[in-house]
Design a protein around this nucleic acid. Sequence first.
RNA 1: GGGGACGUAGCUCAGUUGGUUAGAGCGUCACAUUGACAUUGUGAAGGUCAGAGGUUCAACUCCUCUCGUCCCCACCA
Length: 847
Amino acid sequence: MTKELGKAYQPTDIESAIYTKWERSGFFNPDNLPGKRKTPFTISMPPPNVTGELHLGHATGLTIQDIMTRYHRMKGDRTLYLPGTDHAGISTQVMVERLIASEGVDRNSLGRAEFVKRVWQWKKKYGTRITTQVRQLGTSCDWSREHFTMDPSLTAAVHKAFITLFNEGLIYRGTRIVNWCPRCATALSDLEVKHVETASKLWFIRYPLSGTTKYIVVATTRPETMLGDTAVAVNPKDKRYTQYIGQKIILPIMNREIPIVADSRVDMEFGTGAVKVTPAHDAADYDIGLTHHLPVINVIGQDNKMTKEAGEYYGKSVQDARHDIFIRLENEELIEKTIDYVHQQARCDRCSTPIEPLISKQWFLKIAPLAKPAMAAMKSGKVAIIPKRFERVYFHWMNNIHDWCISRQLWWGHQIPIWYCQKCQEPTASSAKPKSCKKCHGKQFKQEEDTLDTWFSSGLWTFSTLGWPDKTKDLKLSHPTSVMETGWDILFFWVARMIMLSLKFTNQVPFKTVYIHGLVLDKDGKKMSKSKGTGIDPIPMMEKYGTDAIRLSVVLGTSPGLDYRMYEEKIAGYRNFINKLWNVARFILSQPAPKGKLEIKSLADTWIMNRLNSLVTAVTKNIEEFKFSEAGTALYDFLWHDFADWYLEISKIEKNTGILRQVLSVWLKLAHPFIPFVTEEVWSQLVPSGKNHMLIVQPWPHADKKTTSSSAETNFGLLQQYITAIRNFRSEHSIPPTELLTVAFSGKQTGLVLDNIDIIKMLARLSKLERKDITKPTGSFPGLDYSIEAKIDAAKQQKEVASLSAYIQQLESKLTNKNFTERAPKEIVAKEKEKLREAQEKLKKLL
RNA sequence: GGGGACGUAGCUCAGUUGGUUAGAGCGUCACAUUGACAUUGUGAAGGUCAGAGGUUCAACUCCUCUCGUCCCCACCA
């Protein structure tokens, strides 16, 4: 029946078979789980990009999500882990554009319909790559409920949400200055812009005052935008300029007369205190322009080239125009000076291209009315973030939030469900083409060409995937979801927006707890980067070391919200641990299964069962408290040290195979959420086969009060101390293990030693261990003196005496300090006294 | 400019509401090895817990400041 277990664990041989077994069992689907399951537990998987590839960030998140899922499933909850993928507007479109470029075409020559068709083909081809990799990681999600953000049902949800918000006036269309990425050729939200420190120049340009020979000097990092200047602004408090307010400037090159205006937003300290105002190409200038009713002149187009308004520079690239303008100003002696200047340049988050602020017609979501309840939900504790400090970050952002630009000039995404009447241009929000215009009864319509920001559809993710806007059973059972597990980098992009949109549309928070994991760094603490080659690809690592080892390496030694380093040696270390488990199991399974009831006979038995109970309690508590690293570390230490190093060795004498199997079996259950593959495999060797016997649905263990024993903990602890002391002695005196020692002992604890004499003899490698009165002990413990027959290193002895004396002195000074003895709690004082007594006794015997 | 995190053994990290002679893994060194495991075992060396003050009987732990590293937010051209 049982197959031979190989000497070393070979994960690749069995992982995919086990995953298939799980998937076929149907247990990923909560409707198929055995028993009555009342308490719902739901996790919505943050959808990876459909054309993406699994990286360590995914691996971290998915592992933690899966740990919670597997734990709750075993605990008996109605557990749903819902997977899916995101259409990822920009990045997917860019990939396909790159592909067709290699065929020598661009999207415009292909046309919208054909291009979108090509993207769907691409999605079909590569969309399963990521889900296959998610499976490879052992993720126990319900694939029968898998969703894609552009599924018909999710598109329906997006339409419903958009139309509702539009009809309520929360979505509006406006001509505004937006962040434009020239390379992606689309508007971006504020969040998609990052600020990068960039070395540049600050040019000081003379702007002649109209009707005089005087001029005002302005400082700028972007001289080419001067063509679109419509004012110069100064601070009203700035005495240097008060006399000029209201006067006119002759704008160089353009020879246009522009006013000097006063605005308190101008920083007197910076540059010359006078600012050129270009409302069309700078967000701050745009605001100043609004206040002072300045005209807006577009001199740069969406194609990153100068417009007709730029006069003679029409058609030139921004870079060329800058160069030419500088030369011309210099020739006209209008450049006062040029200095080196480092500033935070706005760049596209995705492609790092410098952002071009441009005026354009875009769709916006009014966010303030949504932010209010979203903040209230966090304040009242309906949503909590772990770690808590991110709640402050959340509030700060929510308090300073701007309207969200939701339209993108992309073809891949949800086309905005707005239809313009071709007669009167009235927009109607509708999922399908309207029959007739409400305003003029026109019959001809044209749909808005723009698509929605990807995050608009992912903002609905927790409820759209459960069937919303329909009132489905899933929505009723599984929403709000229990936990959202994600990285801090998308707290604003995604988490905050989900909270706002979920409250808006379902009146519920999307999730009760947000668990934030850290980002993965390379060995030097830098962000992993594909281009620099510092990244570790999890897939080959999984193949080399096994998936369970990867899972441990992204969870152990990490804490919520803190970034952590990853390197191959770490993974190899956890592979070793998995192999240790494998061999522990191999050893246990090589022995005949016991007949009859479980019997706790010896001190070691009592001790290991007690330890196991503590482990059950600790692992359960830590998982409940989201301390996954601590839970995993406890499992690691127990198996390797308590169980393998001590109990397993002792079992070679005591041969209590019942306990061996019992401990292994409970441990496998506890460890299953962390390392599902190897535990399921070992489990299948340990128990009868059959679907309902699979580890994945075994009930979560409980601590057994009947087998807890604190005295066993103490006594076994002493035993360990004795053994370690002898081993230590042997090593310090360079006595080879082949040489068996003779040890004599005496004292109160002789009973403990006599009861476990064979164990001590084996583990300390002794030929003889006998009770005998000792005059000069080699060493001593509370209740036990011992003497080892061997030559004693005097220097060693002295060193120990010295350290012991120092320790005693430290304790004595503490205990003679009245402040301590009078003010510290009695237990603490008693404890210190006991320590002193023990140390003194030990020292006496050594001398 | 605002906010946050981190600084504990050579390296990567634990250290729960203040009370242990400060821990683990890797690495190093010594020794061991024919039945579960060399992806191993046993033991050792290695730390003024970044620095300076303060609170306290007692500080790695709480407070303040300083130094160092990193990150987030922000329309100083």
